[in-house]
Design a protein around this nucleic acid. Sequence first.
DNA 1: GACCGGATTGGC
DNA 2: CCAATCCGGTCC
Length: 213
Amino acid sequence: MPPPPPKDMSKRLPRKFYQRPTLEVAHDIIGQYFFTNQDGVLTGGRIVEAEAYCGPDDLGAHTSGGRRTARNEAMYGPKGHTYIYLIYGMYWCINAVCGPADKPQACLIRALEPVVGLEAMRERLGAADDARPEHFCRGPGKLCRALGLDKNHYAEDLLKDRVFMLPGKLAEGEEVGTSPRINIDYAGEYIEKPWRFYIRGNPSVSGPGKWRK
DNA sequence: GACCGGATTGGC
DNA sequence: CCAATCCGGTCC
């Protein structure tokens, strides 16, 4: 059963939320609300899955080894802004830039439990009328498509009104699980770090069944 | 200027 | 299991 939308849509997660160790942010971001406003069309939901990318040491991060390029420049910018990139030539993925001021780190938002704008999401996805709404934002590429996110939202401030985060909390009985991150075969010793966070048993969490338990 | 491969997805 | 699809990173 989806949670209600936030009571006060003008609230924002404060800058300080992002100015903390990235592992804490990735854990605490579970249960917070994430929205986009595209020319008045509001779509969003509650974050149920996220991953921490802790550059420059993390071999899984785009900023591994201190790499700094046009693509990952946003991770060297202000905390609480977006870092968006294209993967496999077709899917956009969105991160919240976070962590210590001097580290290029970010939290990948992997899945939402849809709460507002289900019809707009359905349309953007080209989903069938009988498609299950709880799957509209299941996976990082899919959630960006459902929320209309792409390069135009690169390095956008999450405290403003186009792409934003609102405070939420876990429902009674909900637990945050951890696991290794998904699809980072190239990350050597960092493959196994338990830096993925998700709500146990939630149907909007991505991956095969065992990744949701 | 060429070549390679990806923080994914959905269909077979 | 595998193709789709394209930009950026890397190296010549």
